[in-house]
Amino acid sequence: MGIVTPGFQGRPRVEAPDLPPGQYLTPDFPVLSAGPTPRVPREQWEFVISTETGTEHRWSWDEMMALPQETPTVDIHCVTRWSKLGTTWRGVSLDTLLDGVETAADYALTHSYGGYTTNLPLEDLRDGQAWLVHTYDGDDLPAEHGGPARLLVPHLYFWKSAKWARGIHLTVEDTPGFWETAGYHDYGDPWREQRYQGD
């Protein structure tokens, strides 16, 4: 009882139909941050993937930029309820970075300049689902949005897309990150509205 079917209004809903439950559309790009914004010069920047055996794979800025580049256009969904559709980025697919990385790990813990961490299953970084991006909407990614480079994992809530990405630890056991140890959901699927633990 009490449920009004939108179709009875005789016109389409103004809310974008592509939004996950509980989200609203914003034309802006809100800046969320749990701490000071790190300023990392590109000549000092590096990205490291370390495996459960301790093997490390490192890329300097120039080495990362020399890898095959992709230009994904994706929708992003923040757990604070804003969504932004059709955002365009440029960067390196995690498939490319993980190519040649031998691992038996099931989980990944991304860590950032500034100390932020966030975890997800390794399989969510594969198969064209995740990128290390350095360009937003045709311009260098600003520091307040995670530049020089951030992770982009758009099928999960945006806190999983770590700003100022510095590296990824591949682990056998799941290791909850910054928000995941403070009440937020371990996986964070916006379409299942997995905001908080137990959702």
Binding site: S33, A34, G35, P36
Partner: peptide
């Protein structure tokens, strides 16, 4: 301006309290 409140030490900037 974050998914929760993060209180940091004014001396070393490390996290002292988080409230979600």
């Amino acid at each position: 301006h974050a998914p929760g409140l993060v209180g940091r030490c004014p001396t070393c900037i490390e996290v002292m309290v988080r409230l979600v």
